[in-house]
Amino acid sequence: MEYRNPQVPEGINVSATHPLLDFLRLLGGLAVIAAVVIAAAVFLADRLAKYIPFQAEQEFASQFSGKLPAPGVVSTYLQQLATRLASAQGLPPGMGVTVHFVDEPTVNAFATLGGNIVVFRGLLARMPSENALAMVLGHEIAHVKLRHPVSTMGRGLAIGVAVATISSGAGNDIAGRTIGHAGLLTAMTFSRAQERAADEEALRALAQVYGHVAHADEVFRLLAEEAAKLPVDPPAFLRTHPLDRERIDAIAQAAQANHWPTTGSLLALPDDVRKLISTPGP
């Protein structure tokens, strides 16, 4: 009997699909998963944040709020203004805000966990009036009132956990880390809807405290100029907020709809505060 080992045809054990096409298809699948996870996290974080007691948020924040600078003349003034605005905004019982002044040239202000609001000298020094400053503070107080910091943190945590689960499932170190960082970066900022809601709250408080909303839009005009000066690296306050033009328009619309006067007498910042912020250093 004659034996032969014939040449086996190619392509039986190996798929002909191009590896890059395969990779793109998988990336598409991952994008779908990411979209679903992020949508679910945002949806749940927004709805569940209000059930987290404010006291728990404060306790959590106490572990890092000790690092903020001690109160001084400027922060006492800011705190007084914030307290007036907060009572106008009607914060629920047990909720309060603490304003911290940071003596750095950064043009920024932000609200974070536990009702802590941080204002930088760079922003304060550019405020043309107390009314404009009240708009900034009112905006940050509104974030606290609407529980935006805690819902943002919840969203970030949910996305982080989901990403960690997926990437450990994929069993890949650097790839997983890369996806993880990207996910957390997108979660660290307030959403546009949150910014808009905070703007509206701040306007209402302004109208209540001063009887008009003059200089409310001045803040955004100033910040837009500031951004134009630094085209390379705009301050975080600008980058994460809706476009200034849109916000100025929204302020005008809200003022018209609620019959809030857009002109009125403006208050200047107190002299001792102005002196302190115009020269760098404590």
Partner: peptide, 13 residues
């Protein structure tokens, strides 16, 4: 490295 990443993602689906 490429095969490794692709197979990692594939193991999800």
């Amino acid at each position: 490295y490429f095969k490794r990443v692709v197979s990692g993602i594939q193991s999800i689906f």
